[in-house]
C-alpha cells in the first residue's frame, strides 16, 4: 500500500474465506434493507413507480419481487390513479 494513503480502518479482508463471506453477508443485509424499506415506503403511501425509480429498477421488477409479500402482510397498496401523497 502507498505510504501517503490515509489509514484504512477496514481494508478488504485478506483471507478469501472472509472476503467471500462478507460479500454474502452484505448481499443479505442489502436484501433485508430493501425488503424493509420498500415495505415502509408502501405503508407510507408511495406508489410502485416511485419505489422502482428510487431503487433504479423497473416497476415490473419491484412489483414482482415485493407485491405478494406486501399484500400478504396486509399493506394497503396504492392503485394507479390514486392521488399521490
Amino acid at each position: 500500500m502507498v505510504a501517503c494513503m490515509p489509514v484504512v480502518e477496514n481494508p478488504v479482508p485478506r483471507d478469501p474465506a472472509d472476503a467471500l463471506a462478507a460479500a454474502v453477508a452484505l448481499r443479505r443485509l442489502a436484501d433485508q434493507l430493501e425488503d424493509a424499506a420498500v415495505e415502509q415506503a408502501m405503508r407510507e403511501g408511495w406508489g410502485w413507480p416511485l419505489v422502482a425509480e428510487a431503487l433504479g429498477v423497473t416497476r415490473q421488477a419491484v412489483h414482482k419481487k415485493h407485491a405478494k409479500r406486501l399484500i400478504a402482510a396486509g399493506v394497503k397498496l396504492r392503485r394507479r390513479g390514486d392521488d399521490r401523497v
Binding site: Q32, L33, A36, A37, E39, Q40, R69, L70, I71, A72
Partner: peptide
C-alpha cells in the same frame, strides 16, 4: 441498522 423487520416472503 434499526429498520423494522420486513414481513416474511409470501412465496
Amino acid at each position: 441498522y434499526d429498520l423494522p423487520a420486513p414481513s416474511p416472503s409470501a412465496e
